[in-house]
Amino acid sequence: MPRTITRLLSTVTLAAAVAVVGTACGGGDTKAACDSIQQEMTNITSTGMQQTSDPAALSKTYSDGAEKIRGYGKDAGGDVEDAANDIAAAMEDLGKKASAGQMPDAQALGNAGIKLKNACE
Rank of each mutant, 00 (worst) to 15 (best):
D64A: 02
A83H: 11
R70D: 05
D35E: 14
D64Y: 02
P55M: 05
I87M: 10
K60Q: 12
T52S: 06
L58E: 05
P55F: 05
G65C: 04
S36W: 09
A83P: 12
D86K: 14
S46D: 09
G73W: 07
S63Y: 09
E81S: 10
E67N: 14
D75T: 15
A66E: 02
K31Q: 13
G73S: 04
Y72N: 08
N43I: 06
D86M: 07
I69C: 07
A76Y: 09
K60L: 10
G28S: 12
Q39C: 01
Y72S: 07
S46A: 12
A32Q: 14
I37A: 00
G77N: 07
D64F: 01
E81R: 15
I69S: 06
S46N: 13
V80S: 02
V80C: 03
V80T: 14
K31V: 00
A84Y: 10
G28Y: 04
E67D: 14
T45H: 09
Q38K: 15
A83K: 13
T52N: 10
A33D: 07
D29N: 11
T61C: 03
T61Q: 05
Y72T: 09
L58K: 06
A66V: 00
G65T: 01
S36V: 07
G27M: 08
Q50S: 08
G65K: 04
E40D: 08
S46H: 09
D79V: 11
Q39A: 15
G26H: 07
A84Q: 13
G28C: 06
G48P: 05
Q51M: 13
S46Q: 13
A33F: 04
E40I: 01
D64N: 07
T30D: 15
Y62Q: 02
C34H: 12
A57H: 02
C34P: 08
G77S: 04
